[in-house]
């Protein structure tokens, strides 16, 4: 297990790719966007990027909002 920051909260996760993490969280990869250490990780490369100790991830999606 490694320690990362996920959406602002510390979390212990299994080693692996970002795609693995997204899947293990039960999220549909087609409906989210991921930023790792303030850089966008394109959806097409999520399976190629390995998580590293201390990574700060943001996983976002669209929610209702106005102006």
């Amino acid at each position: 297990m490694i320690a990362i920051i996920l959406n602002g909260e510390p979390r212990q996760v299994r080693e692996g790719s970002i795609a693995d993490l997204v899947a293990s969280l039960g999220l549909d990869v087609k409906k989210v966007a991921v930023e790792c250490n303030r850089a966008i990780v394109p959806r097409s490369t999520l399976a190629d990027v390995a998580l590293a100790e201390g990574d700060a991830l943001e996983i976002v999606h669209f929610v209702g909002g106005g102006c």
Binding site: L6, G26, L27, A33, I59, V60, H61, V63, G64, G66
Partner: peptide, 23 residues
Amino acid sequence: TVAVRRVNVSDPGAPMLTDYIDP
């Protein structure tokens, strides 16, 4: 218009906007 927010990782099955308004 839609907003961009963190997903609720503790409740990934929660209904999403995209389930109701088809992008």
